[in-house]
Design a protein around this nucleic acid. Structure first.
Lengths: 156, 156
DNA sequence: CTCATTGCAAATGGTTTGCATTGGG
DNA sequence: CCCAATGCAAACCATTTGCAATGAG
């Protein structure tokens, strides 16, 4: 397992490193993913590869998830969305209007997490941080209020 | 709509404030929820109220969600879990061993969010922050490694 | 050859919906 | 009375799994 990748890793190599075969269906899925710079859903990928079975799509995504080169994140309502991981450790911004996923890295957060750790009764073993935004493009397009219809764990 | 509640609100009153009836089934669900200080799943509630239909349980939870007195949060794998909101604005800690959900409020985070906003190309409309922990009880019980099997968007 | 991998279809888990029935106000 | 609210069962959606067929080393 290669330790640090500051830039987008070669997904096929990642699979092979883990002892999995880089088969045709898997290459197909990977090819699609690598072109999705804005996040994707599993079903979306599934529809875009008619030749490949649904199960294989999901299995491949899961493989990449476990390898750490794909991230699974959650929309406000909990709906799953995936994205390619470019940085080793990062968080995400998701535009609630167009769905575009951005990566985002801030050392301050790590520092903060450590500080917060002292306030929490227990040991922090992980965290999830997602920012819901209206991206620049969408801001430009229209100046209407962004209403977050679904709920919660959501804060303004 | 009452603006600020520093402590646990009266859920029945919340419903009525919104123009909904505080019917028996709903009272039953609410009664259960109010005893769950550690988070719950919808299905869990459903099983614990045999007299009430599954649909009603889900509908009631959704009502409370929309009223902002219940939070929907996500386990690392995205599995949904609910919890009562005690503070108006807060985040959650979830023990991955026992599932206990804690609330957690830190002004530093808000400050940080504002600072981060400048780095993000767009407008922050919401965020999700969840800390996955091993709580004190679980730490005591056993000293084995906490392995986060599923993936991602998870950071250590 | 042989075992990893696939595709399909069926199973699952969580949640929602349609609809006829019911029960508060 | 009447409409909101219920229960049930079926529908749904994303994801997983069993299993026999396939294909790469």
């Amino acid at each position: 397992m290669s330790a640090t990748h500051a830039t987008k890793p070669d997904l096929i190599a990642v699979l092979e490193d883990k002892g999995y075969r880089a088969t045709m269906p898997r290459r197909g899925v990977i090819n699609l993913l690598e072109r999705k710079h804005e996040g994707f859903t599993a079903e979306e990928i599934n529809h875009e590869i008619p030749g490949v079975g649904r199960a294989t799509v999901y299995r491949t995504i899961k493989l990449l998830l476990e390898a750490g080169v794909v991230c699974k994140l959650a929309l406000p309502d909990g709906a799953p969305k995936y994205t390619l991981a470019r940085y080793e450790h990062h968080h995400h911004t998701i535009c609630l209007k167009c769905g575009t996923v951005g990566e985002f890295r801030d050392v301050t957060i790590e520092r903060l997490l450590r500080a917060i750790g002292e306030d929490i009764s227990g040991e922090i073993v992980g965290h999830r941080i997602e920012f819901y935004i209206t991206c620049k493009q969408c801001l430009k397009k229209k100046r209407e209020l962004v209403t977050v219809t679904t709920a919660v764990s959501l804060a303004y």
